[in-house]
Amino acid sequence: MALKAAPEDQALLLELQALDTKLQQLGHRAANLPELAVIATLAGERDALRVTVGEQSGASEDAQTELKRTEADVAVVEARVARDRERLQGSASVKDVAALEQELAALARRQSDLEDIQLAVMETVEERASVLAGSRALLAAVEAKIVEAAGARDAALAELDDERQRAVSDREAIAAKVPADLLALYEKQRARYGIGASLLRGGVSSASGVALNSSDMTVVRAAAPDDVLLCPDSSAILVRTAESGL
């Protein structure tokens, strides 16, 4: 037996469909907020900077380790110089004095070379520390932008959620007015085809955007006002009103 429903009940399906369309649009907007793309881009920059900071931090630590090693070498030479000078002052042997003076000369050359190396390493330490500080500043700036964008995203989502809740409340109120069997058919068609109800306006189905052919229009015109019809193109419930051009 064909389903029947009062025209005014069928008309409620158009309001229901409008709200379902709105809910779908709200979901799409929530999933495609501009802030999400901004956050994704910034997250990529952040991740790249984290890798860079990690590499630069390692290089800076290596330079500091090299500096400590060079400082230790210089300290060893300075200790030997101090020891030899002390021995030189207390030595009465011409041979020992000559040997100590020769060693002190060699140590002086060694100390000069090490101090040059130390100076170069200190410059490297300063350069790498400066580069690392710059990268850390960039990372901090990107992370701050992510926090800002996340705040904007959350505000936008909260606004969309408020709108969604109002639409859900309105939908529940309208659905409660629709006869159960008509509502069940609407939900079935919407789940299967994406649209549950379609307005026939001027002979054109709003769901498909296609004008019904003469044969289909003959069937529609012959149907009783309370007959529930389906759109031949979209399979949505075809709702007839004064705009239908019948």
Results as ranks from 00 to 15, higher is better:
2 A>R: 05
4 K>Q: 11
4 K>Y: 07
5 A>I: 03
9 D>N: 12
9 D>H: 02
14 L>F: 02
14 L>E: 04
17 Q>C: 06
18 A>Q: 13
18 A>K: 05
19 L>F: 04
21 T>H: 11
22 K>Q: 15
23 L>I: 10
24 Q>Y: 06
28 H>D: 14
35 E>C: 05
36 L>W: 01
36 L>M: 12
38 V>T: 15
38 V>I: 15
38 V>R: 13
40 A>M: 11
45 E>Q: 12
48 A>I: 07
49 L>V: 09
54 G>T: 00
54 G>E: 00
54 G>I: 00
55 E>W: 00
57 S>D: 05
57 S>G: 09
59 A>I: 06
60 S>V: 03
60 S>L: 06
64 Q>W: 03
64 Q>R: 09
67 L>F: 06
69 R>N: 07
70 T>V: 11
74 V>G: 01
79 A>Q: 07
79 A>E: 09
81 V>N: 05
81 V>S: 02
82 A>Q: 05
83 R>Q: 11
84 D>V: 12
85 R>P: 07
95 K>I: 15
99 A>L: 15
100 L>Q: 08
100 L>H: 04
102 Q>V: 13
104 L>Y: 02
106 A>K: 13
107 L>F: 12
108 A>W: 06
111 Q>S: 13
111 Q>G: 07
113 D>L: 05
114 L>G: 08
116 D>F: 13
116 D>T: 14
118 Q>S: 12
118 Q>P: 07
120 A>E: 11
122 M>P: 05
128 R>V: 02
130 S>N: 06
131 V>P: 01
138 L>D: 08
139 L>W: 00
140 A>G: 07
140 A>P: 05
144 A>E: 09
148 E>M: 10
149 A>R: 00
150 A>L: 14
152 A>W: 01
155 A>Y: 13
156 A>C: 11
160 L>C: 13
165 Q>A: 15
167 A>Y: 03
172 E>P: 08
172 E>M: 14
173 A>S: 15
173 A>V: 12
174 I>Q: 05
176 A>P: 06
188 K>T: 15
190 R>G: 01
192 R>N: 11
199 L>M: 08
200 L>N: 02
202 G>K: 09
205 S>Y: 03
208 S>G: 10
211 A>F: 08
212 L>Q: 02
213 N>T: 08
214 S>C: 13
216 D>V: 10
221 R>E: 12
222 A>M: 10
224 A>D: 14
225 P>F: 03
229 L>K: 00
232 P>N: 04
233 D>F: 01
233 D>T: 08
234 S>W: 00
235 S>R: 10
239 V>P: 00
241 T>K: 01
244 S>K: 00
245 G>N: 01
246 L>V: 02
